[in-house]
């Protein structure tokens, strides 16, 4: 079957509907892999994955340039994850970790990854989001600030509080 010039053009430009389907076929494991490894729930990861690709559909349909890429999808996935944590926190009215005595920033410990996941999941949305973006995703403070909609200064302060909250929950017995 011959292709219409329009489709051929779209493909060459790497945008348009069929380009996104191609992107889906290649990027789905990346997007899903990112989400499931950070949220720890298959059904939640599936929901958020759907939302990410529907956002891509909306972007394509609105003629957004440049066309979505894997990096763009991961960035949207980050925002969806943060939004989810934030909304869930509002629903659950989860209490923030109560401030304890100020801890020094020096902490000599080899973090256990499994235990760390549990601690992250027990943190409030802001702390969990900040630590996930900064350390699991390895983003610069500036990028973390962009995702959270905060200033760099406020994000640095948030990261300090988040590390302390993490450390208190992680416990000294580890």
């Amino acid at each position: 079957m011959s292709e219409t010039p329009d489709i051929a053009g779209n493909r060459m430009r790497g945008s348009g509907p069929d380009a996104l389907v191609l992107l889906y076929d290649t990027a789905l494991p990346d997007v899903y892999g990112y989400l499931v490894s950070r949220c720890g729930s298959v059904s939640l990861a599936e929901d958020l994955t759907s939302e990410v690709f529907m956002a891509a559909v909306a972007a394509v349909q609105s003629g957004r340039k440049p066309a979505p890429t894997v990096a763009w999808l991961i960035s949207v996935a980050r925002n969806k994850l943060i939004d989810h944590w934030r909304h869930r926190e509002v629903e659950q009215r989860r209490l923030a970790v109560v401030d304890g005595p100020t801890l020094s920033d020096d902490w000599e410990v080899v973090l256990d990854v499994m235990r760390s996941n549990e601690v992250l999941a027990a943190l409030g949305a802001h702390h969990r989001s900040a630590l996930t973006l900064r350390y699991l995703d390895g983003l610069a403070v500036r990028e973390v600030a962009d995702h959270l909609g905060r200033t760099v200064h406020a994000t640095e302060a948030l990261l300090v509080r988040a590390r302390h909250a993490f450390r208190r929950l992680y416990g000294e017995d580890a």
């Binding site: 899903y32 892999g33 499931v36 490894s37 590390r163």
Partner: peptide, 13 residues
């Protein structure tokens, strides 16, 4: 905290 760094590992749903 650097130890928590996690590459994006592809995983098929």
């Amino acid at each position: 905290f650097d130890r928590l760094a996690r590459r994006i590992e592809s995983q098929r749903p």
